[in-house]
């Protein structure tokens, strides 16, 4: 589906702040993959997502989508087939607009024309879809999103993204800003949607047990490199202890401060 070939990302080249955020990564995301990505702060997880989504253009290397070169394709164009959810639950929805308006805007990707698509048929469809969230939102379709909680908004963003049928979804620690109960709900929904719609997806998480529990493939990143890539049965047999051991083995380094961040 998506392929990264020798991709590097160098920020502020030639200055004292020069920073090699990604160093020569090769990655092939296969159709139907559900990849979890772990790594400490500064390991390059978010930069990797920014490169895939098109927020930044790599200093070197090429990015392919279905064998088409998309290295220089702007973010808004890639968004037509790549869905992304951010850590900040406010980034996926418009606060000053009603729920039904939000759903209408996100229902179809691409330029919007002078057409009024929001009719009673669409409303019925949205209502039926909202029931899946089990949050009672189907009865609040005329309310502004500013009235909804972060968890509700993140769940909505997820549903709205799934309805637009993207080929790849990027989940950038999308439950990290929520309280534990809501985080659990949103994570469960994520897993449910990914299985139900067989979505190709990548998920960054700081929670090692989540990384092990979910998905069929796991990437561990450190200092801009993918140091560990495991899938299938090998992934299923992983435990938090084994993962930490693996890190020591590869890096010959102790976790130190990172231990807190990679907490099980």
């Amino acid at each position: 589906m998506i392929e990264l070939k020798n991709v590097s990302m160098l920020f502020n080249p030639g200055t004292v702040n020069e920073n090699l955020a990604i160093s020569t990564i090769n990655l092939k995301v296969k159709e139907g993959d559900f990849i979890t990505v772990i790594g400490s702060n500064g390991a390059g997880k978010s930069t990797l997502f920014n490169l895939v989504a098109g927020t930044i253009i790599p200093s070197q290397g090429t990015i392919l989508a279905n064998d088409r070169d998309i290295t220089r394709e702007p973010e808004y164009r890639r968004a037509r087939y790549i869905g992304r959810i951010f850590q900040n639950p406010l980034l996926g929805t418009a606060s000053n607009m009603s729920l039904e308006d939000n759903m209408m805007i996100t229902y179809r990707k691409g330029f919007k024309w002078l057409k009024r698509s929001l009719n009673n048929k669409m409303r019925e469809f949205f209502r039926a879809e909202l029931v899946q969230l089990e949050m009672g939102l189907e009865d609040r379709m005329k309310e502004n999103l500013a009235m909804f909680s972060g968890g509700q908004r993140q769940a909505l963003t997820l549903l709205m993204m799934v309805l637009s049928k993207p080929e790849l979804i990027l989940l950038d620690e999308h439950t990290a800003a929520l309280d534990p109960k809501n985080a659990e709900i949103v994570l469960e929904l994520t897993n449910k949607f990914i299985r139900e719609y067989n979505l190709t997806s990548m998920m960054i998480t700081h929670n090692m047990s989540h990384a092990i529990e979910f998905g069929n493939r796991l990437l561990m990143m450190d200092k801009g490199e993918i140091i560990f890539d495991v899938e299938g049965d090998a992934k299923r047999e992983l435990t938090v202890e084994k993962l930490i051991e693996k890190f020591h083995e590869i890096r010959h380094a102790s976790f130190g401060d990172d231990k807190a961040l990679l907490s099980p």
Binding site: Y76, L91, M97, T106, K109, R116
Partner: peptide, 24 residues
């Protein structure tokens, strides 16, 4: 109240959301 008009409204609120919808 058209799709275009609503998207304009969304942009004033949240530019990232509009980008995510595939609109420049």
């Amino acid at each position: 109240r058209t799709d275009l008009g609503m998207t304009l409204g969304a942009m004033g609120n949240n530019e990232q959301m509009v980008i995510s919808q595939g609109v420049d």
